[in-house]
């Protein structure tokens, strides 16, 4: 399968600080990819490198085999982007924004955008600045989808929305995925929003890639081992994180084996996505490498 997105040794430095370093991933076309990490992990930097808004300090980004750094009209036309806080020109009416989209794009599906907005009851004559946050997000999404992009990139799309607006927003995204088989890459620090809709996971922390893979495989690869409390770090291959409670020690391990070389009192059980992500994000960075 040809990748929708491929990065090699991707790095971005602002002044002296690296926001992203040494990031190499291949993300398959047709998937819905969750980019997860705490605030400041480099998610926005990664997405802006993918959309060509930033030029990498080192490494390469290819979107459908085309260098994102080129910033050509054709490369830009393939990617739909809704930035954090879904910025719109506040003085423009919704109709103005649609007209802007038409005049700045190679492909423009105006009926699609108008139909979506009509279904949502967003009037075209209203100024963007007068819309609610949820409506603004929907307008920004409609603009991105009207480009008929092959890759839709959403930066923290749900962060500023109330629960109903979140549900509506994700519904629109998933309808587009079902209809047009587009690839979606979305970032979030809220894991619950993503579990139901994403099939791929990319985990970033402190500008480093921690984990990337299909969620099913990732879950299958990890086991939680629970046994009697041990105070020293147990030497288990593929240990991600150890947590100790009063009587037990929990070990998250990344290993294909279901039978670790441990005392028979240790029990092994599958791990949930949220649990797994939290374990990766809480672990000290040094161990991760």
């Amino acid at each position: 399968m040809s990748p929708a997105l491929e990065t090699k040794g991707l790095g971005m430095r602002y002044g002296r600080a690296w926001a992203l370093r040494d990031c190499s991933v291949r993300l398959p076309a047709g998937s819905v990819i969750a980019l997860v990490g705490p605030n400041g992990a480099g998610k926005t930097t990664f997405l802006q490198l993918v959309t060509g808004l930033l030029r990498p300090t080192e490494g390469t980004v290819e979107v459908f085999g085309q260098d994102a750094r080129a910033g050509s009209a054709e490369a830009l036309a393939r990617v739909g982007f809704v930035a954090q806080e879904h910025p719109l020109y506040p003085g423009f009416t919704v109709a103005d924004l649609l007209r802007m989209g038409r005049s700045l794009n190679l492909r423009w599906d105006r009926p699609l955008a108008e139909r979506r907005l009509e279904e949502l009851g967003i009037p075209l004559a209203k100024r963007a600045g007068d819309l609610s946050g949820g409506q603004q997000a929907q307008v920004a999404l409609a603009l991105a989808l009207a480009k008929r992009p092959a890759l839709l990139v959403l930066d923290e799309p749900l962060a500023s929305l109330d629960p109903i607006a979140r549900r509506d927003f994700m519904r629109t995204v998933m309808a587009a995925v079902a209809e047009d088989e587009i690839t979606v890459l979305l970032s979030s620090h809220v894991i619950a929003d993503l579990e139901a809709v994403c099939d791929w996971l990319v985990l970033l922390k402190d500008g480093r890639l921690q984990l990337a893979g299909e969620i099913e495989d990732v879950l299958a690869d990890h086991r939680m081992l629970t046994g009697p409390r041990t105070d020293d770090e147990p030497a288990v291959p593929g240990l991600v994180r150890a947590t100790h409670s009063d009587r037990h020690t929990d070990l998250l391990v990344r290993a294909a084996t279901d039978r670790p070389e441990l005392h028979p009192t240790w029990r092994s059980h599958p791990v949930g996505l949220e649990e797994l992500i939290l374990a990766y994000l809480e672990q000290p960075t040094e161990i991760a490498r």
Binding site: A73, L76, F81, P87, N105
Partner: peptide
């Protein structure tokens, strides 16, 4: 307004 992220991700290269 943060709209540079909207303006420059349409299909017109920013230059």
């Amino acid at each position: 307004h943060g709209t540079w992220r909207l303006a420059w991700t349409q299909a017109v290269p920013r230059t």
